[in-house]
Design a protein around this nucleic acid. Sequence first.
RNA 1: GGAAGAUUAGCUCAGUUGGUUCAGAGCACUUGCCUUACAAGCAAGGGGUCACUGGUUCGAACCCAGUAUCUUCCACCA
Length: 879
Amino acid sequence: MELSTKYNPSEVEEKWYAYWLKNRCFHSEPDNREPYTIVIPPPNVTGILHMGHVLNNTLNDVLIRKARMDGKNACWVPGTDHASIATESKVVARLKEQGISKDDLTREQFLEHAWAWKEEHGGIILEQLRKLGASCDWDRTRFTMEPELSDAVIATFCHFYKKGWIYRGVRMVNWDPVALTAISDDEVIHKDTKSHFYHLKYYVSDGNGHPTDQYLVIATTRPETIMADAAICVNPADERHHWLRGKKVLIPLINREIPVIEDDYVEMDFGTGCLKVTPAHDAHDYEIGLRHNLPVLDIIDDHGCLNEQAQILVGEDRFVARKKIGKMLEESGNLVKVEEYISPVGYSERTDAVIEPKLSAQWFLKMEDLAARALDHVESGRIKFIPDKYRNTYRHWMENVRDWCISRQLWWGQRIPAWYLPDGQVVVEETAELALAAARKIDPSLTAADLKQDEDVLDTWFSSWLWPISVFDPKLPGHPEHKPNRDLSYYYPTNDLVTGPDIIFFWVARMIMAGDEFMHDVPFHNVYFTGIVRDKIGRKMSKTLGNSPNPLDLISKYGADAVRLGMLLCSSAGNDILYDESQVEQGRNFCAKIWNAWRLVSSWNVDPEAEQPDAARVAVKWFDNLLSRVIETVEDHYGKFRINDALMAIYKLFWDDYCSWFLELVKPEFGKAVDGRTYEAAVLFFEKLIKLIHPVMPFITEELWQAMEPRHDGETIMYQRTPVAGPYDADFLAQFEQAREAIISIRAIRAQKQIAPKELLNLYVDGELSEELTPVIKKAANLSYIQPGAAEGTAVSFLVGTIKMSIPMAGLVNTDEEKAKLEAELDHQRKFLAGVRAKLSNEKFVAHAPEAVIANERKKESDCLTRIEALEASLNTLQ
RNA sequence: GGAAGAUUAGCUCAGUUGGUUCAGAGCACUUGCCUUACAAGCAAGGGGUCACUGGUUCGAACCCAGUAUCUUCCACCA
């Protein structure tokens, strides 16, 4: 079959992806083969493909395709995540554009809009993954908010509630005033932020609410919260403040009287040693408040604005209020000074809004027991992290974990299955009907109308932690007594998880917890953490910087295979990835190389009767041995998740060894036919090579495989078996390396002396060179003959190991130049010899070093002597 | 503030538990080639005091201590 001169990726990719889909090549059903399972880290349902996805899914696809070719029953389950906060905020933003406020909608109306948005944008990213070549089992596509999976989430909530591990409590939580919801501790990002340290005078009260002329000074970064102060606190050991004992002070501007209290929490040497206690707006202050029975006065509303309770600046945003109150305090004479100050401030991961500590009723899941068990799975090695260093991170988090705030004040998500009775009691059941039944046990007169369901939804991660289970059997989570169905029994535990280290706590840790709780088993055996994709100067990719290429543009420009290869080339596990388009170009170039190699082989005329030239015979033997050795290396790399090392080994095998050496050695002379045996070997090697390449570059390899008809009878390469390494002759491979070295030296001499490659030369060999390899050297170096011994007359000589080689070259040799070169080399060898001898004459070395090391030093010594002798002989000849 | 990790060629990284002939790869670079598969290519080549300072050892890129720089994670001193 005639191939076009250029590889056309887009046409080929479309053709074969459609073919794979049509033939259901990606689909898996349980059978008696060993399963190999991956669940996709579900992207946000309304997300679009970015470079991080490309990296992650390329790695996933390489692993799954490799496993498939290893004969395993490979199943890669795709799907999307409803991404509660992210999606809801997008929907809110779109409604706003249409002039609709969320507050004007009922829950049902809002959800209609949200589902419409999901229908419109949902699944785009899955379509994009197909362009990348992802071999997901699309028949198994799941969505975390589809009915069955939502049921699983609800059941899970009930399960833990009945176990006593879920509780509702009024706690200080992280409030996001933009998203209008509480978020978990993990969703808060602390950033050092420039602010001001206000030093304020609080006057001591005369007992009737009037200021005396005595005062104390506190330091705060949040002067707008002084109206919520409940006390001033000092350290009991701080003698500077003992005069304040039992006194009351007045809050500036509003003149409210508050007590001075003492608590060890206050650091004497920080600030002024006086702390204003504001229980409603600071987590630590809240704790102090509890200890001292202080009232809680909340002066900030959900949007982060001061409310009526503040008395002043009502309705002002907290940051505006901060500036304004600074002025007011200055005017009232309460402001002592303002210092520049840098302090850590919490920001919302989603909205980047400054988090407001806020007291509110939320649902929590106890973590202690779950975390201990999840930690053990990793500590014991049942789950391996690649790279290993993430174990430390994981352990630290697990040992310091706090209860998980699982409620979110949002509508897009699974609604908490808790119903409140009119008297405030709560029942938790999977459905409204069951809840009513449960409520009637408390009060038989109740009707459905009397029950009010909790308004909140659950944290997205409370659904995605079930993912490796619920994609197979949504009935199991929450119902541990349920018998796992056929899919779950077969595919669980999954094998490998490829994901970013940024979600190690959000997702990885919690999947391990859920797996342990419901399956009493790990959810996966290996977690491969990818790095973050950055641009080539190390910046994170972001829309605002505009340094993030659109993967689909890259695919249409270079082809999916090129993008995949480019991504993998720069990705060693756990390191951040500095992406550069030149790597994708390298991928494209590799495609061209593969394409052209087959164009060459397939263009040959074959004469089955022709005798196989010696050089070709040896080349075949060599490549056969080499192939086995490289396959062994590649398998080893895969086993250690060193995907880019595996890739590089294959890349070099194909480009350097197969193309540059093997094909050049067996290539028939112009106009002549290739013999049958050599041709068969060249084709067979090519087949094995594209099988090795297929997991990384699925499209071009399928195209060429199919182009090799009728050899393959229309079978896909996807289900061919990975080539296996046979035994190989390491000595022979080493001998070939010597030949290769000789050839390179001869070519270099040609280049130096400007002798055309076509001009025949003669070679004299003084030393033990394998007879078998002389035809190879002859062909590759274009020699007319190779003779034992040393060249007579003027010659250029060089060393290959300890073998002296020389090429007679009358008239072309500059004797002085050659002499200088030889002398330099001789000098170097003598120094080397001196070093080796120094070692060998060191008694301690001889006494302590192992036999093998000493023997090796002796070999170095004798080889070096041989070389010195050869060099001296060459010098003599020149003189 | 705590912790983990990193520092090897211009760039990105290997270096498998201290010892194969003065440290390897890919890319980039230099030189020569439009040689009938491929100029997106071929051939040849240059390039490193393994961050720094000490120590352990017969022997250190590798182990130990300290220093410097960087990255990430965790952390509510108001």
